[in-house]
């Protein structure tokens, strides 16, 4: 009996926090800051969210592309179609790995930093004092960060894909000796701009939005103590990763599933 009651209470808590998160999102999006003040803030956040995540994205993209080429080569050469390696690498990266792995890296690198930063601002009463100065922290602090995540994520994902394809070419063409013309030719004939590239970009836009939302919300909603901030940071990474993988399945089914 207690178990049932506890389950009910937990479910209500989850629904409640989802409601709070939506309300919070509404508060952030409704108040669009004035362009004159908002733009420099956005630039600053784009720097810390986007540019600072660039290194890890580029390095991971390079290695993932190289590994894909190696693995793909061993499998495809069994069928004598190693020329299809370009197609395989490009499709895997553009459709799946680009958006998903970038989103996971983004949640770990930028999302956790956002949560910790906002949580600390809350713990040191910076958000409260801003509110008392007549400045809405949702607009001033949260909105630029949310938008920065939203904008930076697709850019990072595209850079990831490009670097990955380049890494795959490095291994496939220069090392394993696949003919360069068929590497690119196969790729170009099978990758469609709208269906593959743009759908991949749409995925990363969705992931960027979800990751940034979870990160800023966890920071804003955290218990303002050191234990609270650390658990909020953990939650950001866990929830973002789960949300990205779950959404990826749904989006893939909608975009590429033929039914």
């Amino acid at each position: 009996m207690d178990y049932v009651a506890g389950f009910g209470r937990r479910s209500l808590e989850v629904v409640g926090s989802l409601g709070r998160a939506t309300q919070f999102l509404f508060g952030v999006l409704v108040g669009v800051p004035k362009p004159a003040t908002g733009f420099p803030l956005l630039i600053k956040q784009l720097y810390s969210v986007g540019v600072l995540s660039l290194a890890i994205v580029v390095v991971s993209g390079l290695f993932i592309g190289m590994v894909l080429a190696l693995q793909g080569y061993t499998i495809l050469s069994d069928y004598g179609s190693e020329a299809a390696i370009g197609q395989m690498i490009a499709l895997t990266l553009v459709r799946e790995l680009g958006p998903v792995v970038t989103a996971l890296l983004f949640a770990g690198r930028a999302g956790s930093a956002l949560t910790a930063e906002i949580g600390l601002m809350k713990a040191t009463e910076q958000l409260s004092s801003m509110e008392m100065m007549g400045v809405d922290p949702l607009r001033r602090v949260i909105a630029p960060r949310l938008w920065a995540g939203f904008i930076a994520m697709p850019i990072l994902a595209m850079i990831f894909s490009v670097v990955g394809i380049w890494g795959g070419m490095l291994v496939g063409v220069d090392w394993l000796g696949v003919f360069e013309g068929s590497f690119w030719g196969n790729m170009q004939s099978s990758v469609d701009f709208v269906d593959d590239v743009l759908n991949g970009v749409i995925k990363s836009v969705v992931f960027g939005f979800v990751c940034a939302w979870i990160a800023v919300y966890q920071g804003y909603d955290c218990v303002p103590t050191s234990a609270g901030i650390s658990s909020a940071t953990t939650k950001t990474v866990v929830y973002s990763s789960l949300a990205v993988l779950g959404l990826d399945f749904v989006l893939t089914a909608v975009m590429f599933g033929d039914f």
Partner: peptide, 23 residues
């Protein structure tokens, strides 16, 4: 730096469009 970041994103999109999807 952020400007360069945006340019890199645009360049990546162009690369994906022209070189990868053969558009």
């Amino acid at each position: 730096v952020v400007g360069f970041f945006m340019i890199a994103g645009l360049a990546a999109l162009l690369f994906l469009a022209l070189q990868v999807s053969g558009l």
